[in-house]
Design a protein around this nucleic acid. Structure first.
Lengths: 192, 192
DNA sequence: ACCATGTAAATGAACGTTCATTCATTTTGT
DNA sequence: ACAAAATGAATGAACGTTCATTTACATGGT
């Protein structure tokens, strides 16, 4: 194992530690000292990999967002059917949120705090492009309601975050048959 | 003006200041010293009205949540039509979120961070009872999908918070004709 | 194979700052 | 003249960050 590889391992370790701590107690309960301890490095070592806490958080955000959109559009190539395309991507997104719960929870924490600077947030949004294209196509064909993409997102994707949040608090459980049910609600809200 | 009334005015002033500061920069950028300054009182005075910062935030949360549910169910008495009842309550909720944007933004901040303790959160949930009853009635009549109330909430109410958030960031604008459009999406997602 | 030497990585105590909270004192209202 | 309310400087804890020092590793000469 080379020095560089060790460095990457340590970097990943710090990222994982940050996600864990932020998820369990929020940003204000994730001091650098604890992040360091959980990643089994000294406090000062963090600054060899990240310029500052702000930089650390931004990089974690971008890395997780990237993992998300990679999952969302895995194996996806546009077909003739807008509905099929949307179903594929929607299920990919849902599967990611269930499989990588930690990452999904972290992302939804980020969407509601000013901890992430606007630049990183814009960067993160860029990843959703293919989904917007599906919707545009659907609207051109008269299959999708002719409304703002923000409305389409609010009703077809955003609700998943709420259900995940309730699951996190043991108030609700997303079982497999329910997923199809949830999908139907998502589709019915955006179809024409 | 009695001493007590002055005290209440100061209390309200502190609550407003807390909402403003938390909304603009997040919880971590709302130190007691600034809250005091914005409310035009000395730092130590806060502790005549609130036991601690945690207590202050919890009380703000409960007060705002109360204002929310009072608005949501204002003038509401169950009629024969589940759909009418839901429409009334839904529009009340939407109107509150537009009219009292500060309070609504504060609530959605609270729902996604651990700055509110679980006890206050449970207390806040209790207020939604009447909405759950509308849904139960609708399900009994076969008008509403027979799914978990969390799913109904996720698709019919939660999306409003997302749109509000986008509006807050000047990415989307909720105009009056759009509200009806949004309502239709909400209803179509939960109706049988 | 061994060590000497140079460089990069890692350490953790120390620093300066900020914060919530306290309390001796002053101001206000009755 | 008394009590309640308000003040804001002082306090100590916690935080992000720095840096003098130590440790680990790679390289090249013997």
């Amino acid at each position: 194992m080379t020095t560089t590889e060790k460095g990457q391992a340590k970097r990943q370790s710090l990222i994982t530690a940050t996600i864990d701590l932020v998820n369990n107690n929020g940003f204000h309960a994730a001091p650098m000292s604890l992040i360091a301890k959980r990643a089994s490095v000294a406090a000062g070592t963090i600054y060899r990999y990240f310029e500052s806490k702000q930089d650390l958080v931004n990089q974690v955000y971008l890395e997780v967002k990237e993992a998300f959109s990679t999952s969302a559009f895995r194996d996806y190539t546009p077909t003739a059917s807008v509905e099929d395309d949307f179903r594929t991507v929607w299920h990919n997104i849902a599967a990611f949120k269930l499989r990588e719960r930690d990452k999904a929870v972290f992302l939804s924490q980020c969407d509601n705090t000013p901890m992430i600077d606007e630049a990183s947030r814009q960067e993160g949004l860029r990843h959703l492009r293919p989904l917007l294209e599906i919707w545009e196509r659907g609207q051109a064909e008269g299959l999708i309601r002719p409304v703002s993409p923000y409305q389409l997102y609010a009703f077809s994707i955003y609700p998943i975050a709420f259900l995940l949040h309730m699951q996190q608090r043991d108030l609700y459980d997303i079982t497999q048959p329910r997923i199809d049910e949830v999908y139907r609600m998502a589709w019915d809200s955006i179809k024409s």
